[in-house]
Design a protein around this nucleic acid. Structure first.
Lengths: 127, 127
DNA sequence: GGTGCCGGTTACTTCAACGGTACCGACCGC
DNA sequence: GCGGTCGGTACCGTTGAAGTAACCGGCACC
């Protein structure tokens, strides 16, 4: 192994169209990925989503859905009925997210425990 | 098409050990994934990392590295030399993150443009 | 003794996401 | 007119990550 960091990293190591920022763009919302999972099986109503998303408030769910609608991954359909009915579903673009999400979930199943354990370890030691 | 949402989602749709929360746990730090990419090729020094991470400040880089060290994905080695030398590298656990990251990057290369375009679209109309 | 390098730290500010509570508008049945 | 359902909005506070700016200790070089 005579390959101990051959060359330094250049300032343009990340090109302008680099997809790495994808992760923080997508991952910043706490509930977004759970919502995507809930919509995987078909359209769901607002109050129907609140059942599996234990602990979410109406406000946060509405905010998350609006932002996902804005991103084009979720479609909102309001029916002029009474009582009101609103359905949310994944767009084709939203469905494409299932692939990387599965990959992340697979990682989580194998390694998330180690990571959280290490995090708790340091919390105990460092205070 | 007689399958329009057959059954409602149960309250325990997400099991306690569900890996979906992996995403916000990992994705919350803006620079973490870029740092991982920088360390992919081998150990790097603190100031060496600042070159490709255009715009990061020493404080944020130090914070990010500490938190990643705490999570067990990065290892820090300080050498008692002068001027001081500190090297950071991926742990085996950190290397396992390259797989889901590649998956997300692949998604980003195909679809991140659409998402950002949709986001800007709504900013113009609604903003 | 002054300057610079390296790898930081500290204090302060800003900002987005989250959480909690309260309330709304329409229409129904009583 | 009263309450209930559905799908929200308004207001307010908290938190955690990011950004800005200033400074530090140790040594080497001049």
């Amino acid at each position: 192994m005579t390959r101990p960091v051959p060359e330094p990293l250049p300032a343009d190591f990340f090109p302008a169209d680099c997809p790495v920022p994808t992760v923080p763009v997508l991952g910043s919302r706490k509930w977004a990925w759970k919502i995507i999972r809930c919509l995987e099986g078909g359209p769901r109503r607002f109050s129907e989503l609140r059942v599996p998303l234990v602990g979410i408030t109406a406000k946060v769910l509405a905010e998350s859905l609006r932002s996902m609608e804005q991103d084009g991954v979720v479609a909102r359909t309001a029916y002029a009925e009474n009582p009101p009915r609103v359905e949310y579903e994944l767009t084709p673009l939203g469905r494409t997210l299932l692939v990387p999400m599965d990959s992340l979930c697979e990682w989580g199943q194998e390694h998330l425990g180690s990571l959280l354990a290490a995090r708790l370890e340091h919390e105990r030691h460092g205070g």
